[in-house]
Each structure stands twice: as structure tokens, then as C-alpha cells.
Write a protein that binds this DNA or RNA. Structure first.
Lengths: 344, 344
DNA sequence: TCATGACGATCGCAAATTTCT
DNA sequence: CAGAAATTTGCGATCGTCATG
């Protein structure tokens, strides 16, 4: 048996022209109902499959949207994926998906390929360390006039829409909550210098500390990867300190889960002996032992707003780039409680 | 500035033919080094972007591979994604990604679109309830002669390669472990009738019970969704029973985490008062409170073998479909321990 | 005039074919 | 006549224009 049937195959079968078949399959009213049905029936029996390369070449648009993710192993980011994918599917667009795995090179390669594939737009959660020159200007000519929306992480000086969480507010909410519970010895765990989220949250933490008249030194802030292992080993280390903290604020839920694991092994009761907070409020935060106090980042709203913005850009919107900052919500659960009074 | 530059634009700039440019950009030796460099330089300054629709139309292959996932919210499945994506990128193929969200309709829609996009092959984790007719035969003509590899979940009577975990062995390992610790009152939590994994694991559990001379009744097996919430509420319900189990075998780690959460709230010590086991051994299993005894499904090996098989099929391999069953490994941690003797 | 559908050009690239030195 | 270079053809769908009853 030969190759795949094409419009021509159907046209010959039915005895009409190729263009008539094309129109009929798209339910164009210029073709009478009778012939349309004959054509569609023939297409079905022949096992016709639409060729998007041909259509894309002719039309210049492939009907796809590209999404490039920094890290799949963190469920927080896959939450975005779920929200976006649903919205694009509703809009009849397929999602071209890339996983950059926190590598700048892979990210660059992906973005280029997606443009080559004729994606109509790009949603990007930039990998750590992404700077303006990586995604705009000389080294990214292919992104000129290309619709791009950044989510979750901001990259400054970029001519793109951005939809991000209000990280400063989130930290403020957590700090106020813990301070109100009487905590004075704080530690900040995680983050780094390579993402806007890490920088913004740390800065907000430092400002909150200063505003409360508390000093920040080398023992107060510990950078590290967003992993369970980091939270776990860091708490181990803190327990060896002369004066352990009473409250541990983690850059992310994932890190906080690691901290809880270490607490468990040491017989420390989170929320009683030590308060632990996360950030993101991913689904699992309600089911840790104990349930985690966190800040809910509205991945749903961020995803929704981002797809709206991208949709508008793809439709030709030329207004100056917008920077949307989505407010998070404090979620108090059992991993935070009054500062212990017996220790000092 | 008009449209995107094409090969023709470059050809006119440099003063050669379109085909020369085409060859030069692909580093074909038929073009002398000197002109090749002139051409590539011109392409760079013009901001030329390769048009994969045109190339794909001409060549009949788009260089993409499709992956259709059942459920993104379960990190176990995204582990596959990570492994596959890495391997395909190494092979120079882009990944077209679809998220079926456990919906048969969405899955069907995706598969069709992916074929339309000229994907060279498809890796599929079928959604729950997928049967032969959904992905082969009359209702899926477009998959005739199309390379497909099923992973994780089997669909019987399908003419495709399959790479799955040895679920019966996994359950056997867990059961023997717990039985050896003295447990006699077991409960099975999760699964259902709609996936091969759920059926195989449940069947293996029943067989193990029978072989051990233990009876299986309505109180022994509880089907339900693979979610934290299910594990949580089911344990609540079991605690209300007259004679609670001493060992809870969960269909998946996710469910087990939910069980651990409920244990925590009730002051039950997993591994002491009650033994809890998961299945999959996803990354988080080592960091729950307490660390979870589970069975490690080798997502890495399954992913690797699946991409190898798909690669061979895409290269024209016509041997009969293969069914690869990957052995899992028991991982004993702290959520399982000797059966309590004080209770009965 | 209107509804229906035929016709041919075209998208950008790559492979086959022809022409040149 | 070999080898390099230029030319032509065609992938499969879409769109604008034109023809027919």
C-alpha cells in the first residue's frame, strides 16, 4: 500500500477539485452540504490525515504555542503546565513543550527550535541565571516581534509581558505571622542569586528583619538548591549550632518538606519546638506531617493571565509590555506555632 | 522591514542560488568552505530562521517525537517525562508534549494532532480506561503503521511495543517484607479497574494473601483515586473500624503520603503502631515523615528502553511488538516495622 | 445575482535533474 | 567525462480569482 492519502487522493475519488476538498473539510459554506458530506465520508474511509506542515507553510502559522519550563522535578512548576495546557487546548492550540532542566544552553536551543517550528508564541519560565541578553537582543534575533510571556520569574530589561507572584508580600505575610507568634530567632533557607524570586524573597526577608530591629548575619541566611535534600541537611547543620533558630523560613515548600523530614528524625515537633514555613503552597503542603504553613502562589491565576496576555499578543496587540504582579495568600497550618519559651 | 528572511533572501544577498544556501546551512561538503562561510555569515546578520514547516513538508519528517501523558499532577509520571525528554534531545528530536489529564477524549484528540504534525513516533502513557479500540483499529486509522510505544500501563491486544513495570513482583516483595515482620491484618488501598497497573497490583495482592492463607473480604480492598486526599480519608475511615489493619499497602506513594498525614494527626507512629508502604518510590518517598517503605519502579530504565524501542521503530524495525517487563526493587525505610503485639 | 466549485499560483525548503567548466 | 554548480520540480494545503448553471 502506498503513501498517506492527500487532498488530491480524495478529490480524485469524489470527482471534485483539491480546493473543494480543502474547503469541505473545514466546513466552509461555499461547499454544498451534499458534496461536503460525500467528501468527508471519502476522507474518513480513506483514512485521510491532515498535514499540518503543508497547512503551516501556506498559512504561516502552525497553531501551536510553545511552553518552556525550567524544571520538571519540582511539582510547583508543573502546576503551571497543567493550567496553561488546559487553556490552550480550549483555544484549539497545541502546546509545544520544552524542558530546559535549568540549563541556559538547552533553553536557548529550545526557544530557537520553537520559533523554527512556527509557534505562534512562547511562555517561558526562565532557567536560573537567565539574563536579558539570553532572551532578547542580538543573541536572540529570532525573538524580535515574537510574542513572549515570562511567568513566575522576572528577567529585567526584557521587552516582554511578565506575570509573577508578589514575592515581597508573601515573605512579609510569613514574617509577620511568625513574629506575631513571638519568634525572634529566624533563619532563611534556600534560594540564591540567580532568579528574581530568590532575590526578591531574600530581600524582603532582610527588610522585614531590619524593620523588626533584628540583625542579619552569616548564620541567618543560607542559600542552596531547591531540593528536599537541601532542606534536610541544612536543618541537621542548624541543630548543631549553639543557638538554633526558633523559626525557619524556607524559600520553597520543597525545601520545607526536607526540613520536616529532618525534624522527624530528630524528634523535633514542627509547630511546637520549631516553626517551619514553606513558600508556593503546592498541593502536597496540606498533607505533610505536620501540614505546612505556607504562602499560596496563585499558579492558576498566573497561568490564566499569562495565556490571556499571550493570546492578545498573538492577535496583534502592540501595547507596551505589562508586568503583572499577583498577590499570594498566607495559609496557616500546623508547622508554625508560638515561639518556645523554655529555650533561649 | 518586511517578513522573515528566507533562503531566497540570503541567496540574493550573497549572489548564489537558493539550493547552495540550503546546502551551506546544513554544512554540506558540496559547497566550498569559503562560500559556506559567506552564506552562514549572511544568514546570521539577516536574522534568518529555519522554517521547519517547509522542510518538514519536503522531507516528510518533522524531527519531532510525541509524548502523551495521562496525568501531570502525579510526580511519578513527570519522572518519565524528564528521562524521555533528555534522551530525545540527545537524539536531536524535539518533543511534542500532550497532557491528556486522564480524559479519553483529550487523549484521542492529542494523538490525532500529533500525527497531523508529522511526529515520527509516539510514546504514550494511556489514560485510565484506554482500551484497544481507542488506540488501534478502525477508530485510530491514523496510527496504522505509526511507531507507538506504551509505557507504564499496558493495553492488551495492541500491536505496539510496551515497557512496563513488573507490578506483580513489586507487590510480592512488599507483602513478603510485611509478612516476615509478622503482619497478618492487611489492607490494600487505591487503584481500580481501569489501568493495568491497578489490576495487576491488586491481583498480586490477592494472590499473596491467599497463598499466605489469609482471607480477602470487603474490608480488605478499597479502590479509589491516586491522590493524597484519598489516602488521608481512607485511613480515617479504617481507624473507625472495629479491628483496624496492622499493615496498609498503598497502590502508590502518593496515596501512602496521604495515609502518613492522617497517621500524624492521630498520633499514630507509622512503622511502629502501623506499617504503611507505597509503590513507585518517587523522589519524595525518602523524605516523608517517616521515610516511606516502597518499591522502586525504574522510570529511568523504562524511559530508556522505550526510547530505544521507539527509535528502532522509527528507523524501520518491523519485528513483532515487544513487551518489556522491568523488575522493580524493594526499598525498606521507616514506615514499616514489626507487627504490634499489644493489639489484636 | 447568487450559490457552487474549478483553476492556478504560492508558501520555503530539499532532492532530483540538468548544465557548465 | 568527472565533478561542481545551477536549475527545476514537487511536497500538500490554502487563497484569490474566475467560470458555470
Amino acid at each position: 500500500m502506498g503513501r498517506r492519502p492527500t487532498l488530491k487522493t480524495i478529490a480524485e475519488e469524489v470527482g471534485v477539485t483539491v480546493s473543494a476538498v480543502s474547503l469541505a473539510l473545514r466546513d466552509d459554506p461555499r461547499i454544498s452540504v451534499a458534496t461536503r458530506e460525500r467528501i468527508q465520508r471519502s476522507a474518513a474511509t480513506l483514512g485521510y490525515v491532515y498535514n499540518r506542515h503543508a497547512a503551516g507553510l501556506r498559512r504561516g502559522d502552525s497553531g501551536t504555542v510553545a511552553v518552556c519550563l525550567n524544571d520538571l522535578s519540582n511539582p510547583f512548576f508543573t502546576e503551571f503546565l497543567g493550567h496553561m495546557e488546559a487553556r490552550f487546548r480550549e483555544a484549539g492550540r497545541m502546546m509545544l513543550f520544552g524542558h530546559a532542566n535549568e540549563s541556559l544552553d538547552v533553553q536557548a536551543q529550545f526557544i530557537r527550535q520553537m520559533v523554527e517550528h512556527g509557534a505562534a508564541g512562547l511562555i517561558l519560565i526562565p532557567v536560573a541565571g537567565t539574563r536579558r541578553d539570553d532572551i532578547a537582543g542580538e543573541r536572540a534575533r529570532h525573538l524580535e516581534n515574537f510574542p513572549v510571556v515570562l511567568i513566575s520569574r522576572d528577567v529585567e530589561q526584557t521587552p516582554y509581558d511578565r506575570v509573577i507572584n508578589d514575592d515581597a508580600l508573601g515573605v512579609q505575610l510569613l514574617f509577620d505571622h511568625l513574629y506575631g507568634l513571638g519568634h525572634r530567632r529566624f533563619v532563611w533557607l534556600g534560594g540564591g542569586k540567580e532568579t528574581s524570586t530568590a532575590r526578591d524573597r531574600e530581600r524582603a526577608f532582610i527588610e522585614a528583619m531590619r524593620a523588626a530591629g533584628l540583625s542579619v548575619d552569616d548564620e541567618t541566611i543560607h542559600h542552596g538548591p531547591t531540593s528536599l535534600a537541601f532542606g534536610d541537611t541544612m536543618l541537621e547543620r542548624l541543630l548543631g549550632t549553639g543557638e538554633p533558630p526558633t523559626a525557619v523560613l524556607c524559600f520553597s515548600d520543597v525545601i520545607a518538606f526536607g526540613v520536616l523530614a529532618a525534624c522527624y528524625r530528630h524528634g523535633l515537633r514542627p509547630g511546637v519546638d520549631l516553626s517551619v514555613t514553606g513558600f508556593d503552597d503546592m498541593g502536597a503542603a496540606a498533607y505533610s506531617s505536620p501540614a505546612l504553613t505556607s504562602v499560596r502562589v496563585r499558579t492558576d491565576r498566573i497561568g490564566q493571565r499569562a495565556s490571556e496576555l499571550l493570546g492578545a499578543r498573538m492577535a496583534g496587540d502592540r501595547r507596551p509590555p505589562e508586568r503583572v504582579v499577583m498577590p499570594p495568600e498566607l495559609v496557616v497550618r500546623d508547622s508554625s506555632g508560638p515561639a518556645p519559651v523554655t529555650r533561649r
